[in-house]
Design a protein around this nucleic acid. Sequence first.
DNA 1: GTGTATTATGACCACCTGGTCACACTATGA
DNA 2: TCATAGTGTGACCAGGTGGTCATAATACAC
Lengths: 218, 218
Amino acid sequence: MNIMNNTVKNTFHNLPEQKRDMIVQAAVKEFASKGYQKASVNAIARELGIAKGSLYQYFANKEALFLHVFETFTTLVRESVKKRVSSAGGRDFFILTRKVLMAGIDFIDRHPEYFQLYLRVLFELDVPRREELVAKVRLFSGEYFGPICEQAQKGGQIRKDIQPQMVIFILDAMMDRFLQAYAEPYLDGGLGLSVKSGRELADAVDSVMQVLQDGLSV
Amino acid sequence: MNIMNNTVKNTFHNLPEQKRDMIVQAAVKEFASKGYQKASVNAIARELGIAKGSLYQYFANKEALFLHVFETFTTLVRESVKKRVSSAGGRDFFILTRKVLMAGIDFIDRHPEYFQLYLRVLFELDVPRREELVAKVRLFSGEYFGPICEQAQKGGQIRKDIQPQMVIFILDAMMDRFLQAYAEPYLDGGLGLSVKSGRELADAVDSVMQVLQDGLSV
DNA sequence: GTGTATTATGACCACCTGGTCACACTATGA
DNA sequence: TCATAGTGTGACCAGGTGGTCATAATACAC
């Protein structure tokens, strides 16, 4: 996991944890708000109040810094989902997907910058190793949801006249878009997800899940 | 419609149509493949084989060029949908949405660069007047789908225990993602939409629409 | 206190950007 | 044929970029 192409130098690992966190935090903020290309190493150094040369003492180049930041994101998201979902072990398929969706909302609440970073990677074409990074997160819906879907289909919870991959696609699409709308208000088409109270938000989640359930079951 | 902030200069309108098309074509290609910020006016001029100064004789600045390009996109998409959808006048709600989806696929087939441009505007935060531009296209789902949804809800085609805006959101989300997956294969989670034959593609559309219909009706 | 290894620094580099402008070119009309 | 108006041009500008490197500061061992 931490091979990192040895582009992250030892000097960085030798740093006190607090300073490392500061650096990653500043970097994720810059990358999330500007995107990879427009993000400026100068700006990150300025924000941190350190010399640019120092950053290049920690990381081989801009790309290495970015990849490290994204790496911390993926570990963060995996931990979050695992913690939030696997806790209560409901076997019901739709209860599970509902939990994943709620975990996503929770993640955005806790780490909005990281989610925005993810969106940038998703939709900026000139991000280094973009497909690889996207795949790392998508692995989620593929590897994680895949078997669960199949099982639910065999178990009779999901209709059988539809490709398993299509089920995953539909779930993934709805959940992804829901989260995007939550994180980026202009995407929700007037639903106002991001300003809803916890109660209203839960209702919205229920609405979506209900439609999916009715559409996917039988 | 063509007020354009007078940032498009007369010299451009005076150009022979063929040359204007060439310029727009080169610009959309550059903006679509690089995104607004990284797109280079130099590169566009180079591609066209004309001097950069000429471009600035046609447009006040990079932003004006970009806005003009996007303008041609919006008119293009409106024409396409209108032509494709309004022709056969089925009143059935789900048949209509299916037609809109097929029109989207058709548009991507015909103008892949324009669709990619749209995706960039959608997901790059530092595009000039981004929200305004997105709204122009979203108007589609809002103004166009809105009344249709309400009517379908009153007419009993769509369940009434769900907010009309939520119906629009769900439709919009699914269709948008479907088209994105069709245009950008890495988004489809292994479905392989973009390489499907016409028959298989139609089947995929049917699958999605069937789930939506079953989920939204009653 | 001295010497050595590690880290911090910012001036500097080559390169590219969006945008300008004085000048060259061309077409038109008299 | 000449003058004028409109168009094309590319060297040039200031500003920003990612990246380098000689030097300064520091930490640590003895």
